[in-house]
Amino acid sequence: MVMKAPILESRHVTHRFGGQAALKNISFSIEKGEVVGVIGRSGAGKSTLLRFLCALETPEEGQILLDGIDLTKQPENRLIEIRRHIGLVFQHFNLLTSRTVASNIALPLQIAGRPRREQQERVNELLELVGLAGFGEKYPSQLSGGQKQRVGIARALAANPTLLLCDEATSALDPESTTSILNLLTDINRKLGLTIIIITHEMDVVRRFARRILALDHGKLIEDGTLIDFLSDGGQKKTLQPLLADIRPKLPNDVAQQMCETDSPGAAIIMRVVHSGEGVMPPFFGALAQRFTLDAALLQGGVTTISGQPVGDMIVSLRGERRDEAVEFVKELVKSMEVLGYVPHHP
């Protein structure tokens, strides 16, 4: 099998500010057409990594390769050319208020010295692509936040980039606009086969958009995988729990108040289970009902679709004489299981 060369690589990237490490030995590679989310809390190193990926700065150690070209070794005049192949979408749009929508989109083409007719054709094509046909003569002040971001995306695509980097591209938007922008980026990836990286602190954004996630924490890459991997690892890796907190099912208050860490006769065991694949729910609850005489209850959570695959992320309660047998069965059936605690039996 012929291995495809990655379009983007970070090799052992390390950088310090005033002796404090902002990034520590960051290595990953991304193939053409991948949709990747880079997530982390404030101070995790996301913004520093972004500046290296788009060749605005050079790390103290390590390499950044785009299409096999080491960006850390290029002179500034070469980097100017390379940056034209990297599209940037910003949190606060960065549109020029004195220019029309069409003129904002055309700006990269004007800087590159493209003929006027070519500029106009490309602008019209991009307006159609981002759903703003007929908006070319409007000004940014006449647009909603979601429409401004569509203009920002069109401008980033103007020069046919190899890579599209989105820096908190939905953070300034309302939920409806966020959904529309994520749908647009997904459509662009599908139509153009463009490699897209979205950098965000919002787990829900990468849940809905990214097929692969890189998680940063205090300058370290702590996870590289799918959201299913994250959900499965969340109980074992404490550094992931704050990132996952907003999207995971939570214990009902009445259960949380009764729950304790110590098992006791007749107690219900409370577990978080992650399961994936076809028929996520029926095999789990159906098999428990058929094999064991116990009370099995879904306390919170359910099934959703992630990257086209059904995934169950659930908090369940098991109580009965054969409870421990059922727990061993569940371990074999699901992708991951975490015991959260026990609810004592009250006759």
Rank of each mutant, 00 (worst) to 15 (best):
K4E: 15
I7T: 06
E9S: 15
R11D: 07
H15W: 13
F17N: 10
F17P: 12
Q20R: 15
L23Y: 10
K32A: 14
G37T: 02
G40Q: 01
G40T: 01
S42T: 15
A44L: 05
G45R: 03
L50Y: 04
R51L: 10
A55P: 13
L56T: 07
E57A: 13
E61H: 14
Q63L: 05
I64P: 07
I64M: 07
L65R: 09
L71E: 12
K73F: 08
E76L: 11
L79P: 14
I80E: 10
I82V: 14
R83H: 12
R83E: 09
R83F: 09
H85A: 07
V89Q: 05
H92N: 12
H92T: 13
F93A: 10
F93H: 13
S98F: 04
S103R: 05
N104T: 14
A106D: 02
A112W: 01
G113L: 05
G113P: 09
R114G: 05
R114N: 08
P115H: 02
E121L: 09
N124M: 08
E125P: 05
V130F: 00
L132N: 12
L132G: 13
G134P: 10
F135C: 10
Y139D: 11
S144G: 10
Q147R: 00
Q149L: 09
R150V: 11
I153A: 14
A154H: 00
L157N: 05
A158K: 12
N160W: 12
N160E: 15
P161M: 04
L163K: 02
L164Y: 00
A169T: 11
S171R: 08
D174Q: 03
E176K: 04
S177F: 03
L182N: 06
N183Q: 15
R190E: 10
R190T: 10
K191F: 04
K191Q: 14
I199L: 09
E202G: 06
R208H: 13
R211M: 07
R212F: 10
A215Y: 00
A215S: 13
D217I: 05
E223Q: 03
G225R: 04
T226Y: 11
F230R: 13
F230H: 13
L231R: 09
K237D: 12
T239A: 15
L243N: 04
L243D: 04
L244Y: 00
L244K: 00
A245R: 09
R248V: 13
A256V: 07
Q258Y: 00
D263V: 04
P265Y: 02
P265V: 06
M271E: 08
V274T: 01
G279Y: 03
V280N: 03
V280P: 12
P282V: 00
P283A: 05
G286H: 14
G286T: 12
R291K: 15
T293Q: 14
A296H: 12
L298N: 03
L299D: 14
G302L: 02
V303K: 00
S307Y: 04
Q309R: 14
G312C: 08
I315V: 12
L318S: 04
E321M: 13
R323G: 12
F329G: 06
K331W: 14
L333H: 01
V334P: 00
V334I: 05
V343Y: 01
P347G: 07
